[in-house]
Amino acid sequence: MTADSFLFWFLAIVTVTSGLSVILMNNPIYSALSLAMTMVGISALFITLNAFFIAGVQLIVYAGAVMVLFTMVLMLFDLKHEMQAFVKGKFTGFIKVASVGLLAGLLVGAILMSVGLFTEKTTDNPVTFGTGMEATKALGRILYTKYLLGFEALGVLLLVIAIGAVALSRSKGGTHEH
């Protein structure tokens, strides 16, 4: 067993276990902490795929900012009476679990059937190898040329979101005056 495959299986076990605990933990704070663990695992998986810069951004944005916000909000809520908010009713629950299982089977089956169709060309592009600097430079170049419009649109979206979030958190909530 080589180091690469060992790393993959280790990270796969870590991400799937912590991903499962996100939905199985009774206390939402433990869910948030396990999700942060999943994010760190996925970031390490990005490194095994030579996406160094994206891995760093994943750590900073997801694990370092988004999940910290989730955890902070949950800790402020202090949900003592509302620990187990699972779905009620055995029948609907069973239908949902069955449909999720069906989706899983479909996805995995589709991947296994179609994966032979790709011709893997892993040696073609020097950009996706090396220490990450070349890939990051190339990434910047196409971000500011080919995808410039999308990038600008995201900037506008972030501005709108920032204003919207501030407005929402300042409002009293509800649609009618009390």
């Binding site: 779905v87 679990v97 999720v100 995995v108």
Partner: peptide, 13 residues
């Protein structure tokens, strides 16, 4: 895919 399905189970359940 497995992670996606876990997330979807979370949304449903």
């Amino acid at each position: 895919a497995v992670l996606f399905v876990i997330g979807m189970a979370g949304v449903l359940l």
